[in-house]
Design a protein around this nucleic acid. Structure first.
Length: 569
RNA sequence: UACCCCGUGGUGUAAUCGGUAGCACAGCAGGUUUUGGUCCUGUUGGUUCCUGGUUCGAGUCCAGGCGGGGUAACCA
C-alpha cells in the first residue's frame, strides 16, 4: 500500500518526522496508539492526544490502536475502560485494534527474566523509602543498593518467588541495573516490578507483581509494532529509559515523540484537581457541564466535531502555552451556526400587549400561526409554525423606557419587527407601584405580516418573542467559566478552589416556544439572539425538558455598551 | 544549584536545500442582513528573547547570555 499523505495533511514537527521516516524507509506503514490509563475520565487534553494519534495514522494511511494502560490495579476499573471507549467513539474516532497492557504481562515477564540473566536487572530488598533516599537528588548522585550485585541465579530465584507470591507487598522489587549516578534520575536503577497482591480488572488474581509504566510502555509499543509513540512532554526524560529497555532486550524500538499538552484558559486538566472538584461537590459529578471532561463537554452541548476541529487547529508543538478559550468557543459556534435549529425562547420575560389585535370569532383570543425558518444557514432545515397572539412575552432587555440613541430595540414610540411576525409600535407602558415596567403596550400593523412593510419602511431591530398563552415553561441552566481566573492551576498556594466562579451556573425558568416541549436529550438549538442550548439528556423528563447553555452568541450590543461605560476616559 | 526541552504580533501556529514573516482567533473600521448572530471587505499589531559570529543574504546555522517549562512515586 502507498502511504502518500493526504494533500491537506498539516505540517508540524511530528508529521515532518514521519514523512522523513517514510522516505528513508525506516517505516513502511505508520502505526500509532492512544494509551490511556483506565483510572479516570477523559478530558479535553486527551482530546488533543486522541485527535493527533488517530489523525496522523489516517493521513498516512496507517493504523491507530486504543490501548488500555492498565499496569496498576490500584486505581483502575472496568467502568473507566467502558467510559474511555465511549468517549473516543463520541469524538468520532475508531481504533483499528483494542489492546490491554495486561494482555502482554506474560511476555513482559519473560523479558524481565532475560534482563536478569543478562545481569541487567536485580532484586532489591530495600523498601520504598530506602530506595528513594539512595536515589540522590537533582544535583547529587545516588548510591548503589547493597543488593545491587546479587548473583544472577539468586536474582532469578527471587524474581520467581516474587511472582509466585512468596513475598509480601513492598518487600522486594525488581530493578534495572543502569547507573545510580546518571544525570537523568529515571536511569538510576528504575523499579521494573513491584509486588501488589491485588485483584486486577482484567487478569484477576493471576498476578501479584505488576510492571511499572517504564517497564511496560515501550514493550507494549514494541509488541504492537508502533512506529511513532506520541506522548506529552513530561515523558521526555523517560525516552532514554524507553530506548534502553528496547535496546537491552534487542527488540523492535519504536520512536517516541513528545509534544506539548493542551492547556485552555479557565480549564483544569489535572485528574487530581478534577477529582477534588467532584469529591468536594463543587460540581455535580464528572459529567457536570462545567467540567472539561469529555462527558462534561458533551452535556454542555459541545459538538465533537467542534472539539476535533479545535484540536486540529491548535496544532502540535513543543512549547507549553495556553489557548484562549475564545478560540475553542469560536469552533463551537462555527459548527452550531451551521447545524443547530433555531428556536425562540424568552429567559427574562416582559409582557407585550398588542392593543389592536383582533378578537377571535368565538370570542376567544385570536391566534395566528406564523412560519419560522429553522435555520437560515441551511435551507434544507425547513420551517415550522409558531403561534402568534395579542399577548406575547419579549426579553426585558429588548425594551428601554429611556433609550440611548444607539439602542435600536423597542421603546415608547418606536417600531420594531417581531421575528417572523409583524411590526409593532410601542404606545405606552404599564407600571407597578414601584414604577417598574410590567408590560409594554403596542399596536401592530396588519400589513407587515411575515415581517415586511409593503410601503418599504424599515425598522432597525428584530426581536424574538413567544406567545404568552402557548409558551411552555422549562428549566434553563446558564453556564459560565468554572473559575474566575483564566489560569486556575497557578492559584496562590495551589488553592484553586478559591477561584471558583460563584456564577458559573445560573438556573432560570424560561418561556419557550411550544415546539421545544418535545425536544429530546442531546438535541442542540440556537435560541435566537441569545445562545446555543442543548436539551440535557440526563435531567430532562417527557414534557419537562431542561436546557443547558452551551455558548452565548456574540453580542455586539453588549460589547459596545461595555466599551462605553466600563473604562474611564 | 544537575540534566532535558523550549523561546515568532494579544493568543496559538506556519515559513521548501538559509533568500528579509503567512494563517486562524481576538481587536478595530465599514458593508450586507427579518438574529446588534452569520456572511463580506478593509485594517492595527512582530527590530522572529538578547548579543556576537558564519554568509552576498539567517526566524532558519554556530557561540554565549537571558527567559520559560519539565524532572527526584514500589503513579501513568
Amino acid at each position: 500500500m502507498s502511504q502518500l499523505p493526504e494533500p491537506e495533511a498539516p505540517s508540524d514537527f511530528i508529521r515532518d518526522r514521519i514523512r522523513a521516516d517514510l522516505q528513508s524507509g525506516r517505516v513502511t506503514q505508520v502505526v500509532t496508539r492512544f494509551p490511556p490509563e483506565p483510572n479516570g475520565y477523559l478530558h479535553i487534553g486527551h482530546a488533543k492526544a486522541i485527535t493527533l494519534s488517530f489523525s496522523v495514522a489516517k493521513e498516512f494511511g496507517g493504523r491507530c490502536n486504543l490501548r488500555m494502560d492498565d499496569t496498576n490495579p490500584a486505581a483502575e476499573d472496568q467502568e473507566y475502560v467502558d467510559a474511555i471507549k465511549e468517549d473516543v467513539r463520541w469524538l468520532g474516532f475508531d481504533w483499528d485494534a483494542l489492546y490491554y497492557a495486561a494482555d502482554y504481562f506474560d511476555q513482559i515477564y519473560a523479558w524481565a527474566e532475560q534482563l536478569v540473566e543478562k545481569g541487567l536487572a536485580y532484586v532489591d530488598d530495600q523498601h520504598a523509602d530506602a530506595i528513594a533516599a539512595s536515589r540522590g537528588t537533582l544535583t547529587a548522585p545516588g548510591t548503589n543498593s547493597p543488593f545491587r550485585d546479587r548473583p544472577v541465579a539468586e536474582n532469578l530465584r527471587l524474581l520467581r518467588e516474587m511472582k509466585a507470591g512468596e513475598w509480601k507487598d513492598g518487600e522486594k522489587v525488581l530493578r534495572a541495573k543502569i547507573d545510580m549516578a546518571h544525570p537523568n534520575l529515571n536511569m538510576r536503577d528504575p523499579v521494573m516490578y513491584r509486588i501488589r497482591k491485588m485483584h486486577h480488572q482484567r487478569t484477576g488474581d493471576r498476578w501479584c507483581i505488576y510492571p511499572m509504566y517504564d517497564w511496560a510502555h515501550g514493550q507494549c509499543d514494541s509488541i504492537e509494532g508502533i512506529t511513532h509513540s506520541l506522548c506529552t512532554l513530561e515523558f521526555e526524560h523517560h525516552r532514554p529509559l524507553y530506548e534502553w529497555f528496547c535496546d537491552s532486550l534487542g527488540i523492535y524500538k519504536p520512536q517516541q515523540i513528545e509534544f506539548a499538552r493542551l492547556n485552555v484558559e479557565y480549564m483544569l486538566t489535572s485528574k487530581r484537581k478534577l477529582l477534588l472538584l467532584v469529591e468536594g461537590k463543587h460540581v455535580d459529578g464528572w459529567d457536570d457541564p462545567r467540567m472539561p471532561t469529555l462527558r462534561g463537554l458533551r452535556r454542555r452541548g459541545y459538538p465533537p466535531e467542534a472539539l476535533v476541529a479545535f484540536c486540529k487547529h491548535v496544532g502540535v508543538a513543543k512549547v507549553n502555552g495556553t489557548h484562549e478559550i475564545g478560540l475553542l468557543e469560536f469552533f463551537v459556534r462555527d459548527w452550531l451556526n451551521k447545524n443547530a435549529l433555531r428556536r425562540m425562547a424568552v429567559l427574562d420575560p416582559l409582557k407585550l400587549v398588542i392593543e389592536n389585535w383582533p378578537v377571535g370569532a368565538s370570542g376567544q383570543p385570536h391566534v395566528e400561526m406564523v412560519s419560522a425558518q429553522n435555520n437560515p444557514e441551511d435551507p434544507n432545515a425547513g420551517a415550522r409554525e409558531v403561534p402568534f397572539s395579542g399577548e406575547l412575552l419579549i426579553e426585558r432587555s429588548d425594551f428601554m423606557e429611556n433609550p440611548p440613541k444607539d439602542f435600536f430595540r423597542l421603546a415608547p414610540g418606536r417600531e420594531v419587527r417581531l421575528r417572523f411576525g409583524y411590526f409593532v409600535k410601542c404606545t405606552s407602558v404599564d407600571k407597578d407601584a414601584q414604577g417598574h415596567v410590567t408590560a409594554v403596550r403596542c399596536t401592530y400593523d396588519p400589513a407587515t405580516k411575515g415581517g415586511n412593510a409593503p410601503d418599504g419602511r424599515k425598522v432597525k431591530a428584530t426581536i424574538h418573542w413567544v406567545s404568552a398563552a402557548h409558551a411552555i415553561d422549562a428549566e434553563v441552566r446558564l453556564y459560565d467559566h468554572l473559575f474566575t481566573s483564566p489560569d486556575p492551576a497557578s492559584a496562590d498556594g495551589g488553592d484553586f478552589l478559591r477561584l471558583l466562579n460563584p456564577q458559573s451556573e445560573r438556573i432560570v425558568r424560561g418561556r419557550l416556544e411550544p415546539s421545544l416541549g418535545s425536544a429530546r436529550g442531546g438535541e442542540r438549538f440556537q435560541f435566537e439572539r441569545l445562545a446555543y442550548f442543548v436539551c440535557d439528556a440526563k435531567d430532562s423528563r417527557p414534557g419537562a425538558p431542561v436546557f443547558h447553555r452551551t455558548v452565548a452568541l456574540k453580542d455586539g450590543w453588549q460589547k459596545a455598551q461595555k466599551k462605553g461605560d466600563g473604562k474611564p476616559a
